[in-house]
Amino acid sequence: MTVYLTRFRLNPARVGARRLLGSPQSLHAAVLSSFAEPPRQRPDGARVLWRVDQPARSEVVLYIVSPDEPDLTHLAEQAGWPRTGGWQTRPYGTFLDRITADEVWSFRLTANPVHSIRRVPDEPTKRTAHITPRHQVEWLLNRQQDAGFAVLEKPEPRPDLPPADAFEVIAHSRKDLMFQKRGEQDTRTHQVKLSRVTFDGRLRVLDPAAFRRTLTSGLGKAKAYGCGLMTLARTE
């Protein structure tokens, strides 16, 4: 599998970086501009995914998983450190191919946990964000089997707490986004609302092939706006 993982550190002191971080549409466009040819989703489902992490107040990191190797020169010039910053791109496919069943990993996922509701019987369903961490975790647990993994259960779950609290995962850093998007079939603009939530936890691989698809094609909705990308780290 030919896939690349890229890490790029943004410089939040620069106007260009602040503009990109304040607009998921602009950052999406900047990521897609990193490829000489327009990225297309491959038959195996692999596509361009991206996520922004902020491990410290002054540190903001952009991660990209992509079928093709990106060139982030324009981002370094506009929103990074052009002379000393750069970016790191590594082949990701070899790592993915080595994933086997029953491996345990720590993971981070930023996603758009939503559900469809209907307030009256004849009304069309409406996509609505999950608000509470408990419902957000339940959203993830409901998708884990099809995604090829299982979030680990806590060694000693407390029976007096909701079932979602029995698992080694937390949902945090919820951020509500609102922006205007031009329609594909007309020139009118539409207001887009979405909620991004970050999950940190530990998982066990159940189905390596399905799990690889999750890592390269994303999980959930709003992938164009920084959602769906899961990354792994060795568990302690």
Rank of each mutant, 00 (worst) to 15 (best):
V137E: 04
V3N: 10
G218V: 05
P70D: 04
P113A: 00
A46R: 12
R7P: 01
V61Q: 02
L10R: 03
R127A: 13
L32T: 13
V205C: 05
P67M: 03
D186Y: 02
L72Y: 04
Q88E: 08
S173E: 07
T94M: 01
G218I: 02
H190S: 15
D53W: 01
V205T: 06
F8Y: 14
T89H: 03
H190F: 15
T216M: 00
S23E: 05
A129P: 14
G93T: 02
R213L: 03
D68C: 09
G226P: 09
S58K: 09
R202C: 08
P159Y: 01
R182K: 15
R204W: 05
V137M: 11
L203T: 11
L194Y: 10
A76L: 02
P124G: 05
Q180G: 14
Q144K: 05
D160G: 11
R47V: 07
A210Q: 12
W87Q: 01
G148W: 02
Q180D: 15
T100I: 04
T110E: 00
L219M: 14
K223Q: 10
S33G: 10
T2I: 10
V120D: 11
S116Q: 03
E77G: 08
S58I: 01
K193S: 15
G22T: 09
E236K: 11
A147H: 00
L109I: 07
M1T: 13
A224L: 03
D68P: 01
R51C: 06
T110A: 04
K223A: 10
R234C: 13
A164S: 15
V104N: 06
T198S: 09
R213T: 15
T2M: 08
L27T: 08
A147W: 03
R127N: 12
V169L: 06
E138G: 13
G22M: 01
L206Y: 00
S23N: 13
V3K: 01
E184N: 15
P67K: 06
D122I: 13
S23A: 09
P208R: 01
S66H: 04
I117N: 03
R158A: 12
R19V: 02
L206K: 05
D200V: 11
V48H: 07
D122P: 10
G80S: 05
S66C: 06
F149D: 02
Q185M: 11
Q145S: 13
K175E: 09
P208H: 02
W139P: 11
A46L: 02
E184F: 04
H74I: 07
Q78I: 04
F179S: 07
D122N: 14
S33W: 01
I64T: 08
P24N: 04
A224R: 00
T187M: 09
L109N: 00
G16D: 01
R182G: 11
A56C: 04
H190P: 13
A209I: 08
Q144H: 04
P55C: 01
L21A: 08
H28Y: 12
E103N: 09
Q41T: 15
R174V: 01
I131K: 10
Q25H: 09
G80D: 05
M178S: 12
D200G: 07
T189E: 06
N11A: 11
E153G: 13
D146K: 15
V197E: 12
T128S: 05
Y225M: 12
A29T: 14
R134V: 15
T189A: 08
R98F: 00
P208K: 02
R9S: 09
P24V: 02
F179D: 07
A166C: 13
D176H: 07
P157R: 01
A233Y: 09
T89V: 10
W81G: 02
R108H: 04
F199Q: 09
D122G: 15
